[in-house]
């Protein structure tokens, strides 16, 4: 394991730019996606700040804006952009012929992916907290007052609201991790098998598998699940249909990698 960790250290040392690019991409991506999907919040802030006396109705518009759950896309996809360099490691002779077993290199690549994923996740989680803090600092009391002024004494700001944005972080961690680690083996396999356009090809493979899965789901499974009495099986199949191919791909990648010719 010591050698594997040394190799992980080598990889990060040779890609020091990650220390800057990881938070930079995360924050630029966060701001960009927020502007793209939550423009109504920016318009609302603009309106509230320009009007001398905004009406309670105008203020309460913010209470109907849901939390920034689109940020899960950043948790899932940004790490893959950062991990493109892994494909180059598979083909460099001085990396390929390092005195390490194939499984040690494989574990090292997975550890690198995990570290990149966690750092990116922390950046997005932090950005969600920051957004919540900013909105609460300036507008929470204003919104609470608008509720009172409108006669909604017992009504509270919904839990899944942009003002309680950190609420989405739970989902980012659980669902984000699940989806990321389900796609990761396909991404690695595509990086290994295709030197050119590996990301596009890995996306095509993933989309192809999703389409096949959906076809199986609608044409085979949906018609017959009533024969199964166990409720757990019915709910589990949606997860298993992702986990099983991902696990097979994790195993398959190891053998592809072990016997890859460079």
């Amino acid at each position: 394991m010591k050698m594997t960790l040394n190799y992980v250290k080598n990889i990060f040392y040779s890609h020091k730019y990650l220390a800057v690019s990881l938070p930079l991409f995360a924050f630029i991506g966060f701001v960009g996606l927020f502007i793209f999907t939550k423009k109504n919040v920016l318009d609302w802030i603009d309106l509230i700040n320009t009007l001398p006396n905004p009406s309670p109705k105008q203020i309460l518009e913010l209470s109907s804006v849901s939390a920034f759950n689109d940020s899960i896309a950043l948790v899932i996809f940004l790490p893959f952009i950062q991990l493109f360099f892994l494909g180059k490691l598979f083909y460099k002779s001085y990396e390929f012929t390092l005195p390490l077993q194939a499984w040690q290199k494989y574990v090292a690549y997975l550890l690198v992916a995990i570290v990149v994923f966690i750092i990116n996740l922390l950046c997005i989680v932090f950005a969600n907290y920051l957004l919540e803090w900013y909105l609460q600092k300036d507008y929470l009391s204003m919104l609470q007052k608008a509720f009172e002024d409108s006669g909604y004494i017992y009504q509270e700001i919904p839990e899944y609201n942009i003002l309680h944005n950190s609420f989405v972080n739970k989902e980012l961690i659980s669902l984000g991790s699940f989806v990321f680690f389900s796609i990761l083996p396909f991404f690695l396999a595509a990086q290994l098998l295709f030197q050119k356009y590996s990301f596009i090809k890995s996306l095509l493979i993933a989309v192809g598998l999703i389409v096949l899965g959906r076809m199986f789901s609608t044409h085979v499974w949906s018609k017959h699940f009533t024969y199964i009495n166990n409720e757990q099986y019915i709910s589990m199949y949606q997860v298993m249909i992702i986990i099983i191919p991902a696990l097979l791909c994790y195993i398959g990648f190891y053998y592809f990698f072990k016997d890859k010719e460079v």
């Binding site: 050698m3 040394n6 190799y7 250290k9 080598n10 040392y13 040779s14 890609h15 020091k16 460099k92 002779s93 001085y94 012929t97 390092l98 005195p99 390490l100």
Partner: peptide, 29 residues
Amino acid sequence: FNEVFFLPDSSKLPDLPIEKFGSLYGLFY
């Protein structure tokens, strides 16, 4: 791999300080 070293026909090495390259990668040999 510890016994057989391959020097390919072109060398494009990682972005590391020269001395660090030796100490980091030499660790495995």
